[in-house]
Structure formats: C-alpha cells, structure tokens
Amino acid sequence: MSNWKAVCQLADIPSQGARVLKREGKLDIAIFRTADDQLFALHDKCPHKGGPLSQGIVSGRTVTCPLHNWNIDLATGEACAPDEGCAGHIALKQEAGTVYLALD
C-alpha cells in the first residue's frame, strides 16, 4: 500500500506547466497541471535522452520533451508513437487544493 504524502498546493503548479519535487538519491518527480486542471506526476526524465520533462510544453494530456521533441502521455508516462519508452508514472490525488503523491 502506498503512503500518500502532501507535496504542494494546486495553486503552486502553473496551468499548462509543472512543478518539480526534488528527491535526494532518487529520480525527481514532475507534477503537471493541464489547462483543465487535471494533475499528473511523472519522473522528470524523458525516456529518450533524459531531458527534464518539467521544462517541456504541456498540451492537452501530453508533454513535449525540450531536448528532442518527444511527446509523453501524462496519464501513463509512455512515449507517443512512433517513439517508445516510459518516463514512469506516479499516482497522485488532490483533496481540498492539496496535492498528494503515492510514495513508497
């Protein structure tokens, strides 16, 4: 079972942008907010060349890696065809404006 950890407020994440949760000794996590306020969390590392996804452009339910323009599905972390790979998805929830991540 995952432990839910409060990490930020919804207002801390810009619309169509991201906020990074830095983790010492582990992959950083990018928390994305879409234009319609859906939230997603992925490892902040493109599966192609390790680009910082948090610095990419959010459009709909994808983020475009700033290094080589790979599109990553925010709901799954999977690269969109024809590209292949996965950034790793982290479960999250929002309650009363607080964002929680499922961290083990």
Rank of each mutant, 00 (worst) to 15 (best):
E95M: 09
Q38G: 05
D73N: 14
G17Q: 10
I13Q: 07
K26S: 13
D83I: 01
D28W: 02
D83L: 09
A96T: 10
E95S: 14
S59L: 06
C46G: 11
T76L: 06
T64P: 00
N71E: 14
D28Q: 12
A91M: 11
A87G: 09
L39A: 12
K5W: 06
E78G: 07
L53G: 02
G25H: 07
V99W: 01
K93E: 14
S15F: 03
V7H: 09
E95P: 00
T98C: 09
A75Y: 06
D44I: 01
T62L: 12
C80M: 15
C46T: 14
G50T: 15
L101R: 10
V58Q: 06
H43Y: 15
Q55R: 12
L92K: 09
E95C: 14
M1F: 09
I31Y: 00
R23T: 09
C86L: 04
E78C: 13
Q38M: 05
H48D: 14
H68K: 03
R33C: 11
G17F: 12
V99M: 11
I31Q: 01
A102L: 06
H48I: 07
E84T: 06
S2L: 02
C86V: 05
F32E: 05
D36C: 11
L27W: 07
A96F: 04
L92G: 11
T98E: 15
Q38N: 13
V20S: 05
K45Q: 13
V63C: 08
D104Q: 07
D83S: 11
A96C: 02
H48C: 00
A35T: 04
K49L: 10
V63T: 10
K45H: 14
I72N: 01
I31S: 01
I29L: 08
T64I: 15
I57W: 09
L53A: 04
K93H: 12
G56K: 02
N71K: 14
A91I: 00
K22T: 12
V7T: 02
S15D: 02
N3R: 11
D83C: 10
A41E: 04
A81I: 00
K93Y: 10
R61P: 00
K93M: 13
A79T: 07
N3D: 15
Y100L: 12
T34V: 06
G88C: 12
N71Q: 15
N71M: 10
H89G: 07
I31R: 01
G88P: 14
V63N: 02
Q9A: 15
F32H: 04
K22A: 13
L74N: 03
K93G: 14
I13R: 12
S2K: 10
L103Q: 10
L21S: 03
A35P: 05
K26L: 13
V7A: 07
F40S: 13
S2C: 04
I31E: 02
W70R: 06
S59Q: 14
G50F: 13
L21K: 00
P47T: 12
S54Q: 06
H89Q: 08
G85T: 03
L67P: 01
Y100T: 10
G85P: 08
Q16Y: 03
M1L: 13
D73W: 09
